[in-house]
């Protein structure tokens, strides 16, 4: 556990010593503040509009931070050759995969917490209500979803040498799942065979990241989801994370690394 914690610590240190997070945070903050300060057509529902924009920005920023940070981890270790003194210690490749995952996930969690806190302050100051538990639930679901994404990116980074390829492919896949994932079975019904079978198969085998999107619950004050649903979604996310990490380890374990 010491080894994994040490590896995760380095990932977190690297993130806060780089500028990515600060740039995205400042950008999100500025855009949200801008949106919040404009009262279009004296609309009473301006808070809902601010919430929607703010949450969308948080989702985009968190996804970019998670994907970009994770995609460069293993390729950068190989390119800078820091992987060699590391693996010359009693560290297995499994430790490297899990340590990198944990570091990226925790770092993203810190970013996410800051983003949601900022969101709560902005909307709370306008609405004068503070539904902390609802926000906490949305944050947790968002964070679990990012665990699956981070594990997926780690798997991609084993096979694609360039972090940009991994980032682009993952962002397209994640955006595709978020936008179409929930509708794939309905689309499948209106298609002829074999497309219908293929789409139905895809619907059942892909990780349903869209289930973790509680933005509508927050924006339209729809209350909270049940604890049972929350627990099931957490287990589902953990299983998918485990599958991607296992595949990443299997791929990385066989890789020959030459100095």
């Amino acid at each position: 556990m010491n080894k994994i914690a040490a590896l995760a610590g380095v990932v977190i240190k690297e993130l806060y010593r780089r500028k990515d997070f600060y740039v995205l945070f400042v950008l999100t903050a500025l855009l949200t503040l801008g949106a919040g300060s404009v009262n279009f057509f004296n609309d009473d529902k301006i808070v809902r509009y601010v919430k929607d924009i703010c949450l969308l920005l948080i989702w985009v920023s968190a996804l970019v931070i998670a994907v970009v940070t994770t995609a460069r981890q293993i390729p950068a270790e190989r390119e800078a050759r820091t992987i060699f003194p590391l693996l010359a210690k009693p560290v297995s490749r499994g430790h490297v995969i899990v340590g990198k995952f944990l570091g990226c996930w925790l770092a993203t969690g810190v970013a996410l917490f800051v983003f949601y806190f900022f969101f709560a302050i902005i909307t709370g100051s306008k609405e004068q209500i503070w539904p902390w538990l609802g926000y906490l639930q949305a944050l947790w679901m968002h964070w679990v979803m990012l665990a699956v994404v981070i594990a997926m990116v780690l798997l991609g980074s084993i096979y694609f040498a360039a972090p940009s390829s991994t980032s682009t492919i993952t962002i397209i896949v994640v955006a595709g799942i978020l936008l179409l994932g929930g509708h794939l079975n309905t689309i499948a019904l209106s298609q002829p065979e074999p497309i219908q079978g293929l789409l139905s198969f895809l619907y059942f085998v892909m990780p349903h990241l869209e289930w973790y999107d509680l933005r509508d619950f927050v924006v339209y004050d729809m209350g909270m989801i049940s604890l049972r649903a929350l627990a099931l979604a957490t287990v589902y996310g953990a299983v998918w994370t485990g599958i991607f990490l296992l595949l990443a380890w299997l791929g990385f374990r066989r890789k020959s690394l030459t100095t």
Partner: peptide
């Protein structure tokens, strides 16, 4: 190692 490969940050 022959060359220095460490986390420069």
């Amino acid at each position: 190692p022959e060359l220095t490969y460490y986390y420069k940050f």
